Structures are given as structure tokens and as C-alpha cells.
Amino acid sequence: MMRRRDFVAGLAGAGALASAPRPARATAWPARPISVVVPYPPGGSTDITARMVGERLSAILGQRLVMDNRPGAGGNLGLEVVARAAPDGYTLGVATTAHAINMTLFRKLNYDTLRSFEPVALLTENPLVLVVPAAAASRSVHDLIAAAKAKPGALNYASSGLGQSTHLAAELFASMAGIKLTHVPYRGSAPAITDVMAGQVDLMFDTTQSVLPHVEGGRVRALGITSAERLPIARDIPTIREAALPDYVAIAWNGLVAPKGTSPDIVRRLNAEAVRALQEPSIADKFAALGATSRPLAPEAFGAFMADEIAKWGAVVKQSGATLD
């Protein structure tokens, strides 16, 4: 028979177990809005892409994706914010071709495009369009090259910022054409193309999302496109390859990244939902109408893609001799 003191001790132990704090139940992700850092101003191609995809992902995930535009330093300021953020799935960033270029272009960065982030999903790829003001004398790529050769350095070109694809695409063009152009960097694509339309800048390489509406509206003239083949939605714009430089190709891209250490489960879910969103006709058709395409890459494949882009554009940067502090 149980002795009295054993019975009392048992009751005390049971009471301790009953009063002990229970492990907190893990909160399902996402439980609150998600911040998406866009490292450029509103209105440019990266911002357009992020907002289109973000709106659909908000509906799929049941939580708002809030765009946080952080322009500056060739896209570096925004990605630094993402690199420093808690890896809890509530801060994401949009990486671009520029962040592959910047690995070689800048002497010092406060992040590493491969080591500071978890690759989530490739969003879009699209060529750039070489445009000039509607009233410009140049009516072809050959005309533009001839004008640049006649007055070395006299023609200036706009870009969406130092180290952007819009910058390096022009540098590659100038190098292959044997001409000298003067670079005028802006804080984003929207203000840059505005000055091209106004005739304040002589030319620009800009993404199809940003510039085709202005081409169709007659506000700028398209001389060539940077893809290997003509775009179905712009058959009358020749490729720069066919117009003048047979080896010239330059493609811009946007992708979703998360801070290093973000849960693989969150990364995989974001990837699956982003791919799902991009394949929906409501999104895919809009991007196709702007000359952009998307590929369903797994996170690991997107990481390998970024590594390849860093190597490719690194060679262009070294050839151009461009460096930034």
C-alpha cells in the first residue's frame, strides 16, 4: 500500500507538471504582411514586375506583400537592407542583373549576391531596347554608330543607375561598336526615360516593360533590341545583332531573394507560389505583352543562374575597365 508521504509527493509532482508552461505552438507562416524591398524607384521595370507578382502572391498567400522602394547606389542600398533583415520570411528583396554586375563593378560591397541571400525564384527575363528621342536624327543603329564615331564622347546615354543592365548594355554596345559614349546615371528607369523623351539625353538602353509603351506612343524611337531574335510583340524593331553587331546580346532579369538563413520550407513555398503566379494567364499574358518571359526555376537552379550571370557580366565589366567605390 502506498505510504502517505509517497502519495503526497506524487500529488506535488502532478501539480508541477500541470502548472509547467506548455511549448508555444508554432505560428503558421505567413501570419502578417511581408515586406518586399525593391531597390529602385516606383515606375521602373523592376518595380512593375515586383508589383504585378506581389499582387498575385498576396492573394495566394493570404497576406499582403508590401512594396518598399529603396533606391540608391546602383541597387545596392536596397539589397543591403535585405541582407541585414531577420531571416524570418517577412522580408524579401528583388535582385536584378545589376546585382550580378555589382559583384565585379564595385570595389567593396556590404553584401554578397550569392552568400548573403537565399535564392527564391527567377521572376522575369527580358531584352532591352535601344531608344533615342523621337526627334533624333539617327533612324538606325548604323546611323547612331556613325554619329558617335564622328564626335567621340559627344553623345550621352541615360541609365537607371550605375551598374544596372541599362548601364552595362550600353558599355558593351560601345565597346563592340568601337565608339565612345558619355554615361549619365539616374536613380531609376522612370526619370531616365523621361529625359530621353524630352531630348535631354541622346539615347538609352531600357527594358521592354518600361520603354515599349513610349515607343508605341511615339515619344521615343526604337533603333534596336538586345535579344538574339526579334520579339513577337515588336516585329518591326530589328535586333542589334542583325542591324550592326552580330555578336551582341544582353538580357535583363529580376528575381526574388530572401535573407540568408531563411527557412528552406518558406523558400520552397515562396518558390512554388511564385512559379504558380507567373504561370497564371492574368500574369503571363501581361508580361508577354511587355516582351518579358519567365522560367520556372527551383531555388537551387536560380542560385546557379545567378552564379553564371556574375561570371558573364564580370567579364564585361573587366573588359570595359569600369570600377566604382
Rank of each mutant, 00 (worst) to 15 (best):
M1Q: 06
D6P: 03
G10Q: 13
A12H: 02
G15Q: 05
G15A: 15
S19R: 13
A20L: 14
R22Q: 15
A24Q: 12
R25H: 11
A26C: 01
A28H: 04
R32K: 15
R32Y: 11
S35N: 13
V37T: 10
V38K: 04
V38M: 03
P42S: 13
G43P: 08
T46D: 14
D47T: 06
I48H: 10
R51Q: 14
G54W: 00
E55M: 11
E55D: 14
S58Q: 09
Q63T: 11
R64S: 15
L65V: 10
V66S: 14
M67Q: 11
D68W: 01
P71K: 03
G72T: 10
L77W: 04
V81M: 15
V81C: 10
V81G: 03
A86L: 13
Y90M: 10
Y90F: 13
G93A: 03
V94W: 01
V94M: 12
V94I: 15
T96N: 04
H99G: 08
N110G: 15
D112Q: 02
F117W: 04
F117T: 02
E118W: 00
L123T: 04
L123S: 04
T124E: 00
N126P: 01
L128V: 07
L130V: 12
L130R: 00
P133S: 03
P133R: 10
A134I: 06
A134G: 02
A135E: 14
A136D: 08
S138H: 07
I145Y: 01
A148W: 02
L155S: 02
Y157S: 08
S159Q: 02
L162Q: 09
Q164S: 14
Q164T: 12
L168E: 09
L172R: 07
F173V: 06
M176L: 12
M176K: 09
V184E: 14
Y186K: 10
A190W: 03
M197A: 15
G199L: 00
Q200P: 08
V201M: 06
T208F: 09
Q209E: 12
S210C: 08
V211P: 07
L212T: 02
L212R: 03
H214Y: 15
H214E: 15
H214K: 15
V215Y: 04
E216P: 06
G218Q: 07
G218A: 03
I225P: 00
E229N: 08
L231D: 06
P232D: 02
I233N: 03
A234T: 00
D236W: 13
T239K: 04
I240L: 03
R241I: 05
E242Y: 06
L245T: 07
N254H: 13
G255Q: 01
P259M: 02
T262G: 02
S263D: 14
S263W: 04
P264L: 09
D265I: 11
R268V: 06
E273I: 01
V275L: 07
R276W: 08
R276Q: 12
P281R: 03
S282I: 09
D285Y: 03
A288M: 08
S294Y: 02
R295H: 11
L297K: 01
L297F: 07
L297W: 00
E300S: 14
E300T: 13
A301W: 00
F302Q: 05
G303A: 06
G303T: 00
E309K: 11
A311C: 08
A311L: 11
K312R: 10
K312C: 04
G314A: 07
K318M: 11
